[in-house]
Amino acid sequence: MSLTEQQVKALSFQARLQLTAEEIVSFTAQLNKILQYVAIIQEVSVDDLEPTIYGVSLTNIWREDRVRLSLEREAVLANAPEQENFCFKVPKILEED
């Protein structure tokens, strides 16, 4: 499989990364090189194996439903690029998801 510049552009939008025209060209070449390399995994047949998703094989790790102290509001907003009325402030939202 290989990627077209159009597809890389679409990926960059999905990942919310603004790319320049030159970057799209160079990233397309680089990604295709990586794809070529990782294609090695297609050699091996592993359909009979369950995917390993986690770093440990534990299950049912949870906590009881108890309230713990939240952060002080100053701490919540400590790193906010912009704030107003104790809220994080962002430029207008055009799309509604």
Partner: peptide
């Protein structure tokens, strides 16, 4: 970082998910 984000995003899109991401998890098991 951008390169890895783009490549990783690709691995999780339809068309790559099964053949790359899931397959890699099976190889991880192997």
């Amino acid at each position: 970082v951008k390169r890895r984000i783009l490549m990783g995003t690709c691995f999780l899109t339809e068309g790559y998910y099964e053949d790359y991401y899931r397959k890699a998890q099976r190889i991880r098991a192997l």
